[in-house]
């Protein structure tokens, strides 16, 4: 009986998940041409989902959160290429019982409590400063500018053959006391700092 009800439970949850994911995916595929917002390209729609997915494959040290229910904050530094898509992606989602919150920063100084920080291409010139100011803080830095990982960023979205690939700077992540799931590392390319 226990097995049976567990199966039923799994099936129930799975059905809900498929429904929710299906809606999100359709929105991702169908909404963008209709809205025709210039910043919300298909590429960034995928990257927004990836950002959200990182929350599932990365473990933060306990000190990164004020309490177990404290929200996981995804920050966007610089000119936001996601439009409202990122907000739509994380709305209502929870990762490990934590709600997801999107914050936008104009400057690195504004970044207070943040767990995933997407550093936009607009900030390419100030990348070293930004990374330096974030040093010692457990913030997963993600970006899509060239050489982002070699320059000290942790995960870079690289587009190859019309596909988005991940390049990971493990040393940087380690220095920030972040644990990246080995699963995340399987589809990703490991980058050593200074190369790329």
């Amino acid at each position: 009986m226990a097995v049976l009800s567990a199966t039923a439970f799994v099936r129930g949850r799975a059905a809900r998940w498929i429904a929710a994911a299906g809606i999100a995916w359709s929105a991702l595929l169908l909404v963008s041409p209709a809205i025709a917002q210039p910043e919300a390209t298909r590429e960034y729609q995928i990257k927004a989902v990836f950002l959200f997915n990182f929350a599932q494959f990365v473990d933060w040290p306990p000190a990164a959160f004020s309490d177990p229910q404290a929200p996981l904050i995804i920050g966007v530094l610089g000119d936001d290429p996601f439009g409202s898509f990122l907000d739509q992606t994380v709305r209502g989602e929870k990762v490990n019982a934590r709600p997801l919150v999107v914050r936008r920063y104009r400057a690195v100084a504004e970044v207070d409590t943040c767990h995933i920080l997407f550093i936009c291409g607009s900030e390419a010139g100030r990348l070293e400063n930004i990374l330096a100011s974030l040093k010692g803080r457990s913030v997963l830095t993600v970006g899509d500018m060239d050489g982002f990982a070699q320059r000290g960023g942790m995960i870079r979205f690289a587009t190859e053959n019309n596909r988005i690939r991940l390049r990971v700077n493990l040393a940087a992540a380690k220095a920030a006391q972040l644990t990246l799931s080995s699963k995340l590392l399987r589809p990703a390319d490991i980058v050593e700092p200074g190369k790329d």
Binding site: N53, L166, P187
Partner: peptide, 15 residues
């Protein structure tokens, strides 16, 4: 399934 999560999450078909 567990080994396939990242591949699905990050759309990596070859993986």
């Amino acid at each position: 399934a567990d080994n396939s999560t990242a591949a699905l999450a990050f759309g990596n078909r070859s993986d």
